[in-house]
Computed example of a mutant assay.
Amino acid sequence: MAKYSLETKLKAVQAYLDGVESYKTIAQRYQVGEMDVVKWVSLYQEHGYQALQKRYTNHSVEFKMDVLNFINETGASIRRAAAVFNIPSPQTVRTWQHLYETQGIDALKPKKKGRPSL
C-alpha cells in the first residue's frame, strides 16, 4: 500500500472541496488512487486535518463493538463508519466485522505481539 505525505493529502482534499474537479481528476493529478481521495475527503470532513496524519492505535474491544453496532444500527457502510470513528483504513473495520461474524467477540480482543518468552 502506498504512503502519501500529509501535504499531498491536504492538497487533494482542498482541490475536491474547491468544487472544480472530480475525485478521478484529482487522483490522476496527484498520482493516487481515486478511492484514497474519497477516503481523505471523508476523513477530513468528519475530523479535520488531524485525521490525515499518521497514527498508531490499539483499539479496545468496546470501541470495536461500538463501530460494529453503529454499522448494524444505522445501516452505514464500512467506509462511512471508518470516517465517523476516525479509523484510517476501512479494511480495519471490515476485518473486525469478519472476525466478529466468524469467531465471536473473543476474536476482537488484542493479541500479544512478538515471540513468546521462554
Rank of each mutant, 00 (worst) to 15 (best):
M1E: 11
A2F: 09
Y4T: 02
Y4W: 11
S5L: 07
S5P: 05
S5E: 12
L6T: 10
K9W: 04
K9S: 06
K9M: 08
L10P: 05
K11T: 11
A12Q: 04
V13Q: 05
Q14V: 14
Q14D: 14
A15E: 06
A15F: 02
A15Y: 05
A15L: 09
Y16N: 01
Y16I: 09
L17H: 00
D18K: 13
G19A: 07
G19F: 12
G19V: 01
V20H: 11
E21A: 11
E21I: 09
S22D: 06
S22K: 07
S22L: 08
K24H: 13
I26D: 02
R29K: 14
Y30D: 08
Q31S: 08
V32Y: 11
G33F: 09
G33P: 06
D36Y: 04
V37R: 01
V38D: 03
K39N: 12
K39D: 06
K39S: 01
V41L: 03
S42M: 10
S42W: 01
Y44P: 00
Q45K: 11
Q45D: 07
E46I: 08
E46C: 04
H47L: 13
H47S: 06
H47D: 11
A51M: 12
Q53G: 03
K54G: 06
K54F: 07
R55F: 09
N58Y: 12
N58P: 08
H59T: 09
H59G: 08
H59K: 10
H59Y: 13
S60Q: 03
S60R: 05
S60L: 08
V61M: 05
E62T: 13
K64I: 06
K64F: 08
D66N: 14
V67S: 01
L68N: 06
N69Y: 15
N69C: 15
F70W: 15
N72G: 10
E73A: 13
E73S: 13
E73V: 13
T74K: 07
T74I: 08
T74M: 12
T74H: 14
G75P: 02
G75F: 10
A76T: 08
I78A: 11
I78K: 02
R79P: 12
R80Y: 11
A81L: 00
V84Y: 02
V84T: 09
V84R: 08
V84I: 02
F85M: 03
N86H: 06
P88M: 12
S89T: 02
S89R: 07
Q91C: 07
T92N: 02
T92V: 01
T92L: 06
V93Q: 00
W96Y: 12
W96K: 02
W96R: 04
Q97D: 04
Q97T: 05
H98N: 10
H98E: 10
H98M: 15
L99V: 00
Y100G: 00
E101N: 14
T102E: 13
Q103T: 03
Q103K: 09
D106M: 10
A107C: 05
L108E: 09
K109H: 09
P110G: 02
P110I: 00
K111V: 05
K111M: 07
K112M: 15
K112Q: 14
G114I: 02
G114E: 10
R115Y: 10
P116A: 01
P116C: 00
